[in-house]
Design a protein around this nucleic acid. Sequence first.
DNA 1: GTTTTCGGTATACAAGTGTTTACTATAAGA
DNA 2: TCTTATAGTAAACACTTGTATACCGAAAAC
Lengths: 203, 203
Amino acid sequence: MKSRAEQKEKTRRKLIDATLRLSAERGFATLSLREVCKGAGITPAAFYRHFRDMEELGLVLVDEVGLGLRELLRAARRRFQRRGGVARGSVETFIKYVTENPNLFRVLLGERQGGSNSFQKALHAEINRFVEDLTVDLERESRKAKRPLEEAGLAAEAICAVAFTVGAEVLDLPKHRRLDLTERIINEVNMILRGASLGGRRA
Amino acid sequence: MKSRAEQKEKTRRKLIDATLRLSAERGFATLSLREVCKGAGITPAAFYRHFRDMEELGLVLVDEVGLGLRELLRAARRRFQRRGGVARGSVETFIKYVTENPNLFRVLLGERQGGSNSFQKALHAEINRFVEDLTVDLERESRKAKRPLEEAGLAAEAICAVAFTVGAEVLDLPKHRRLDLTERIINEVNMILRGASLGGRRA
DNA sequence: GTTTTCGGTATACAAGTGTTTACTATAAGA
DNA sequence: TCTTATAGTAAACACTTGTATACCGAAAAC
């Protein structure tokens, strides 16, 4: 019940969870190593048994949030694809995930700025993966439906921008207003899809 | 030449500029009061002659960036409105401003997260003002052109999301790739405008 | 010309920071 | 069973943090 590796993994998770919890309030960038340790109920020195520094912890966080959400969205799009409402299904899944993992999501959105440190580079890469996923899906579906989507990449980029930007607001909203926001995003996504579906005058 | 008020304003600007400069690298949230003072070449205690704390300084920064950019964009839209390319003119102006005031812009984008502190509230309000401005413009133009825009508000929100999200990338790009990015944003904005211009099946 | 006001410095403080070192308890390996 | 490896603690380090106090010099007010 307390195999060594098992126990280590447990306190590793305590560190990650504490970071998630704390970074929800003040943002990951402002967290101190000691603060996280206190939140996890651990001595500062023990931190180094798990991570080299806060930056390394940050990278793990990015992976965590990225993997989960991306897989979820893929599944959502597959499920809804052949029932018309690609947008509705994906957006609803997205919002659900965001509201269920607010802390994880805050990290993902929080510090995407400045090309400097590796944390932000990882974040950027993660977000780009969403765009690529969506691009592939949009191209596939548009071919199948014989409703050609011009510039699927542009559409995907725009859709992700809207989802992440407007979607972030859901975190600070009382529950009863979340549905409205979801509908708004769905409409905006559909708007982009319409705009993309008939080819613009300038390629 | 050194009237008191005059001199005070001068060091006030030194503080603001130092903050802008420093926050470009690591983000405003991680800046310490002392650090800013060192950057401005003054004593920590002198800081309090100008601002109560870093938060108050932050609010001033938000105002600064918001005012400048908003006015600029208004002018740009007025200028280009009756020449077809609303999108092109506005986006180009926007990108130009961003590349000319990278630090200011980084602050504007950097810490828009978490509804908690007043800094972020101010930032959010500032961005909303962009959306409102654009909404009004879109409605006016669509009425004039007899090409009704349905849900101008949604379109404006989506356009701002795209501009701010994708536009942020320009900061970390070498000069020769900036034009590409600008074109990409223009296309995406036009995409949204097309999607908005013919009324969707679901209102 | 004298006094007042005030933007600035110098200094001190308690508290928090990242990191290192020596040590302990106990699971894993022989 | 004895030894080794290791996840954890405790304590110390040099340093930075925000803030308060006393003070200085010169512009402003009288």
